[in-house]
Design a protein around this nucleic acid. Structure first.
Length: 486
RNA sequence: CGGGGUGUGGCGCAGCUUGGUUAGCGCACCUGCUUUGGGAGCAGGGGGUCGCCGGUUCGAAUCCGGCCACCCCGACCA
């Protein structure tokens, strides 16, 4: 545990890892479960997940998908049908060997992902080209045994959504893969205010069983990358393993082409690590359980009027669609200010006897201009203007956070044309370099610097040359982004 | 599985080296009074099988042996 400041949290500037761990507990986002690697998501943290879910789910529905649910238990033999898939997941499976007091004839694995059960079901449901495409998404929990858990980032059980679609041909399936890849990119930018580097995974980093894997990689405040969402084109790998076929217009029986795509509770960790600061959480408004907190000031007779007014203003804000909370706890103003800053609430609205007289409130932004004492500059807003002011300000604040994150990412990224530059860049952020694409060389880079290839950015320019690490001719015709990753 | 560390009221820690009053401190909690524009004050109060098992001893939180758990750093990973 690091040196804690007066908030009881190690400053982020001092030790990001300690800061993250302490903040997750202090801000009441989550707690550790009794079994190693498990987490309890507390109401404040779960609300962030719910907001994320609602907005992501809407996008899935808008692109023609329907939700369904598939079982938690999968016969062990199913996992084994796709060679790469078993190999990839075998080390992290939880296996149930007993049920009802008896040893099972065939062990059941607790799903680490659902390609296999879904493949089995799709093979039953699909017979004709008229049945295609199948566009289904599932919200569920999965289990992957973790050697080194970290709350939200890597837990043995986590929540996510997994989309699974089946198509008549490669073109259609690739279109779907890229469409959902695009949905994730748009979502993280417009909802989570995180600019991500989007691109394709190198063969060594591909999903087990995928032909192509696309990823969005966010930059955290310590310059490390966090894989935050993936979209896979699975080709006919699962169709062949599970015999998912259809009869086409020309009477030919063909295998379907499938895709899968997912985003998990890890995204909550991405929000914490991409926006937070020494004072605690910084939540983007579209994911903030509380977007504006009203803090009435004054005690006893002095406090009655501000409190009453605060509730009245809260009603008006709520009517304007703002998630608002009145904090009239019997605690000092300073305590309450710090508390909501720790919890990352975008706007604080102060209302004391002096303001009441002036028919106004003071609005302070969680991240924004500060005075020479480091305190936020507070803006006076008249009572009647508040309900239009707040929603506008929340949108502007979202843009500010996004711009701040873009600037941070750009300051910590750059091209690396020689080994020395590469080494120093991955110490503080992302390095874009030409690479030979050989897995042995990727492993060597990892051993020497700790960095791994995160992706081949989709928007990268055509470029060829010697590999930054070994000098062999570069692969992919583009630069690869390398970084240390969570 | 390697390397490091920690287990003492809800949380954070001290005490252990050199065994010996009733195991202490801060925060949190409860009661009362005063207090409220950047973590309020005073007074009173409740709360502990000192991770577990065994050993040494007149006596163990403290010494010895074993075990367990968790955390951090590496190898696998959304």
């Amino acid at each position: 545990m690091g040196k804690q400041n007066e908030l009881g949290v190690t400053p982020m500037s001092e030790d990001v890892s300690a800061w993250y761990n302490e903040l997750v507990f202090k801000a009441e986002l989550a707690d550790r479960g009794p079994a190693k690697g498990t987490m309890v998501i507390r109401p404040y943290g779960y609300r962030i997940w719910e907001l994320l879910q609602e907005q992501l789910d809407q996008r899935f529905k808008d692109t023609g998908h329907e939700n369904a649910y598939f079982p938690l238990f999968i016969p062990q033999s199913y996992l084994q049908r796709e060679a790469d898939h078993v190999e990839g997941f075998a080390p992290e499976l939880a296996v149930v060997t007993h049920g009802g007091g008896k040893e099972l004839e065939e062990p059941l694995v607790v799903r680490p992902t659902s390609e296999t059960v879904i493949g089995e079901m799709y093979s039953r449901w699909i017979a004709s080209y008229r049945d295609l495409p199948v566009l289904i998404n599932a919200w569920n929990n999965v289990v992957r045994w973790e050697l080194r858990p970290r709350i939200f980032l890597r837990t043995t059980e986590f929540l996510w959504q997994e989309g699974h679609t089946a198509h008549a041909d490669e073109a259609d399936a690739m279109e779907e893969t890229l469409k959902m890849f695009g949905v994730y990119q748009e979502f993280v930018r417009n909802v989570a205010a995180i600019p991500m580097v989007a691109g394709e995974k190198t063969p060594g980093e591909r999903f087990a069983g995928a032909v192509r894997t696309y990823t969005i990689e966010g930059m955290m405040r310590d310059g490390k990358a966090l894989q935050s969402g993936t979209s896979h084109y699975l080709g006919t790998n699962f169709a062949k393993a599970f015999d998912i076929t259809f009869q086409d217009r020309d009477n030919e029986v063909r295998h379907v082409h499938t895709t899968s795509w997912g985003m998990s509770t890890r995204m909550v960790g991405a929000v914490i690590l991409a926006h937070g600061d020494d004072a605690g959480l910084v939540l983007p408004p579209r994911l903030a359980p509380i977007q504006a907190v009203l803090v009435p000031i004054g005690r006893g007779d002095q406090g009655d009027a501000p409190r009453t007014k605060a509730y009245e203003l809260a009603d008006r804000l709520r009517a304007a669609g703002v998630r608002v909370h009145v904090d009239d706890r019997d605690a000092s103003p300073g305590f309450r200010f710090n508390d909501w800053e720790l919890k990352g609430v975008p706007l604080r609205i102060e209302l004391g006897p002096r303001d009441l007289e002036a028919e106004q409130v003071l609005v302070a932004q969680r991240v924004g201009e500060v005075d020479d004492r480091g305190r936020p500059v507070k803006e006076a807003v008249g009572f009647d203007a508040l309900a239009t002011f707040v929603p506008e300000r929340l949108d502007a604040y979202h843009d500010q956070l996004l711009q701040r994150a873009i600037a941070f990412r750009d300051e910590h990224s750059g091209p690396a044309d020689d080994w020395a530059t590469f080494g120093s860049l991955v110490e503080r952020g992302f390095a874009a370099a030409l690479h030979c694409g050989r897995t042995v060389c990727e492993d060597d880079v990892k051993a020497r610097t700790g960095a791994t290839p995160r992706c081949i950015p989709t928007d990268g320019a055509d470029e060829r040359g010697p590999c930054v690490a070994c000098g062999e001719p570069s692969a992919y015709g583009k630069r690869v982004v390398f970084a240390k990753a969570y």
